[in-house]
Amino acid sequence: MLKKDMTRRGFVATGAAALAVLGVPRVAGAQAAFPSETMQVLIPTGEGGGVDQAARAFARVWAKHLGQNFEYAYFPGASGQVGYEVFVGKREPNAYNLLFGNIGPEMIMYATQNPSYKYPDDIMYFGAIDSDDSVIWVGGNSKFKTINDLVEEGKKREITLSTSRLPHPSTIGALALADATGMKVRMVPYGGGGPARAAAITGEVDGCATFLSSSLGLAEQARFLGVFNNENRAPELTNNAPAINKALGTKLPVLSGQRAWAIHRSVAEKFPDRLEKLTSTMKQVFDDPEYKEVAEKAGTPWEFIQYADAAACDASAKEFAALAAQYKSLLSASK
């Protein structure tokens, strides 16, 4: 019995010590300069995925300028909805809690899945770090040499394009292209980027609509036909594929995925100084030569690294929400 009591007492003492150690700096921290404790990053996609890598690469350099380290938690599910709901509903709006996501796909999720949080009332993107264009490519052995070939054939029969999932910027791009040119396309979701790419390479479908950077490693197995942007920013990596708007004279929207840092909207009013500190130190990362090195190792071509401020992020988010609403009937099974 004695032994048991000892353990219990010892345990209580340890627990108290722990609380003291953890609690004291927190109280002091309220007065100290921001940030005085570790930053908590919520990632609405899986551990080890593209977003995770991009976040870690960025935060490794950011930590130097911000003076604090970053810790990560992952809440994948429902195309990002789980992560956003957890962030808005269960994370304290104190500027220590950040979310790192991809504006395009996640605003499409927002518009098609009716989550319980509200944009822009609950959450704001305060800075994007890169911009990855949507593309259409075909297998290396495909008979389609240019985007015009594909459009012409699409006027005669329905073209099948693989995609990781329907609610995705590249899907909207292909559907908008079909609207603008009168071609017919049918999007075929494969539930993942890998199987979607394999389907186009092995000829199960005519081509693949996806983000550019994930398809760069395919070499001669893929022939890029066009980029959904006003210019191709990485021509040497994409067999000089034209910008679709230039090649076809269309006015399709720019359908880029922008990976961005987000925060609770209320932080902007409650802690404007903290937000300012985050924004200013974040900008310094782009000029740091170390970032170029780590970003490229994480798989993002340097051409795609591009800072966008809160206003630009907001404009892009709203544009995606509007586009998704426009194509909702084609992107969602709800009648």
């Binding site: 345990f11 340890t14 627990g15 010590a17 722990a18 609380l19 150690v21 953890l22 938690a73």
Partner: peptide, 15 residues
């Protein structure tokens, strides 16, 4: 494993 930390985990982390 990302279990919610309890008194024991917090104590060990602190020490």
């Amino acid at each position: 494993t990302a279990f919610p930390p309890g008194p024991f985990e917090l104590a060990v982390r602190a020490l």
